[in-house]
Design a protein around this nucleic acid. Sequence first.
DNA 1: AGCTACTCCTGGTAGC
DNA 2: TGCTACCAGGAGTAGC
Length: 282
Amino acid sequence: MPELPEVETVARLVRPALVGRRLGAVTVGWERTLGGLAPAAFARAVAGARVAAVGRRAKWITLDLERAGVAAGHLCVHLRMTGRLEVAPRATAPGPWERLRIALDDGRVLRFIDPRKFGRVRFTRALATVLGTLGPEPLGDEFTPAGFHAALRARRRCLKPLLLDQAFLAGLGNIYVDEALHRARLHPLARSERIAQEAAAGLWREIRAVLAEAIEREGSSFDTFYRTPEGKPGSYQERFRVYGRTGQPCRTCATPIRYLTVGQRGTHVCPRCQPRRPKARA
DNA sequence: AGCTACTCCTGGTAGC
DNA sequence: TGCTACCAGGAGTAGC
């Protein structure tokens, strides 16, 4: 699923095609994509605005809009499971899954395609309305080992559901949580309040490392859905250490990867590298 | 506070 | 081959 690295990849690819463009007519293929705003109101808010910047916050892509040089709200795009955002020629056929189309002043169109309809393109006057509840950005300066350790200790939860909680830390999803926990040699069910300072620092480091490496490889494409807007698959899935590798040997110790369910999420662990109880030190 | 269950969706796949 | 049943999964919400 698109997580932070995939979203960052999409933002980087659409940015040059969008910045400076004026938005035009809006075609809505699936109303709920707009997140509750009526199509007519959405079209009024968007048409005629110019894209001043394209950013990313956690798994959201943000388009800052302006009119006559004055800030005029934001489009916030969440790809959820199967969403795609691309700039294409106007003649491109909508196809069965196009949920939103916005004309651009260069003759092209911005398309939001989403087979499973979970994705959202929300217009908001104030970014905080959409992004206000998000926790720290894992690759940002405000995410520090000491702060992370304190935050873990302040909660009493299993590590995996906590790391998936976007209010706690923003941007990780099922894949990169499993990968980061394996790299940090921590079990998904380990209790957050019992994580030692050293272990928290290790997890902090591995979260950032796995995200940075995945961005470098333009994300992961493990099924037929996710593609970069250029239509290329990412390549990070070749590097997965545990995700989707049930029964295959751990790349560290060759023990078969085990599959379990944690908080209704498919979860992959190496039982040897990620013991349920850490080995007592001699 | 934290946990579980449920909802939204449909393409892909396992099983027959 | 063709059909059906089930699953994945981010995030919001409800209920305990």
